[in-house]
Write a protein that binds this DNA or RNA. Structure first.
Lengths: 187, 187
DNA sequence: GTCTATATAAAGATAGAC
DNA sequence: GTCTATCTTTATATAGAC
């Protein structure tokens, strides 16, 4: 793999685990076996440029992943259930949630950098579109589909936050169990 | 006000706005007109000790605030509606959400400091207990009350995250509109 | 495109006078 | 309890050889 992609891949994981400010450039480059000089050749605008590149990679990876799951299942309910199950598995295996979330980047950087905020916003919008389209297929109105997609995103983000805080997968599991009510009773 | 309390108050606001790593000690102390020497007299263990103190202050302030709102209204549904409305108002007025959230602290620090994670966990538990108790008053079973309280917390946290990301209050408003379905149809 | 060496600024923290 | 001055480490970033 070329140097630039390598840096982006490794930095993405580290940012997701420890947040943007929680990882120093030195740490990233040490893991990559890449030097400062090489880094600034690929990212002349430094660390923030790297973050934006990572957010774009996340956008691709996350949307692809979610789309795959949503294509595998007939209904939104089944798909979202499978999705959360996967998050829970990852969390129980690795101890951290690296997929489908970038909340640390949002909460750290949204107030500090407009371009980072926009990249995050774009990502959430993409995810919600996938949900929303599936919900319309399921028979929901466009408006209702939009609202529920928004809620689902908030739900999952909040659930991940609680899992990280409690260092336990129970919150996401509970949410996964209760979500069907949301989807069924409004159809 | 005594120096220690002053530092805690100002630091709390700054941490909520910019996250823990987003604010330097220098910045905090400059706003307080307090010197390093004085700071380390009150907080021998430095910045992380200050953060813990801030989280405790938040715990008091947030629980008191939410309890007041919940005492003002008959049902959970009305209370939570008023609560979200207050969040939305604050956001529209100030541009940032400083109340009821500390997600930046969680996502930045949970993987790095166990004692910070515990303080955050305690805070979420307290909030959920308030919801849960009210829900039991409303006629829900203890188990159902617990699940719904968890969901509500996840919902609101996720909603705030989306508001910050989109720099708009729409997400929380949508959530506020749709929440009644969750509470009504399971009663 | 990659390297080493260096610059520069900011972080958190300490020492000791008052 | 508060002050100034200082220390140490780490951060991001740059210069210039190869």
């Amino acid at each position: 793999m070329d140097t630039k992609s390598l840096i982006i891949e490794i930095a993405t994981t580290l940012f997701q685990q420890k947040g943007y400010k929680g990882v120093g450039l030195n740490e990233i480059l040490k893991v990559c076996y890449v030097t400062k000089g090489s880094f600034y050749h690929h990212f002349p605008n430094g660390k923030e440029e790297l973050l934006i590149a990572c957010l774009q990679l996340m956008e691709e990876a996350i949307t692809k992943d979610i789309e795959d799951i949503f294509n595998q299942f007939q209904t939104t309910q089944e798909a979202i259930h499978a999705m959360i199950e996967k998050l829970v598995d990852d969390f129980e295996r690795e101890g951290t949630i690296t997929g489908y979330t970038f909340s640390s980047m949002v909460s750290e950087m949204a107030s500090l950098s407009e371009s980072v905020r926009n990249a995050c916003s774009s990502l959430y919008t993409k995810i919600q579109e996938i949900y929303s389209n599936k919900l319309v297929e399921d028979g929901f109105s466009k408006e209702m589909g939009y609202s529920i997609a928004l809620m689902m995103t908030a739900f999952i983000e909040g659930g991940m936050m609680l899992c990280i805080t409690q260092n336990a997968s129970a919150p996401l599991k509970t949410i996964s169990d209760v979500l069907p009510y949301l989807l069924k009773e409004n159809e």
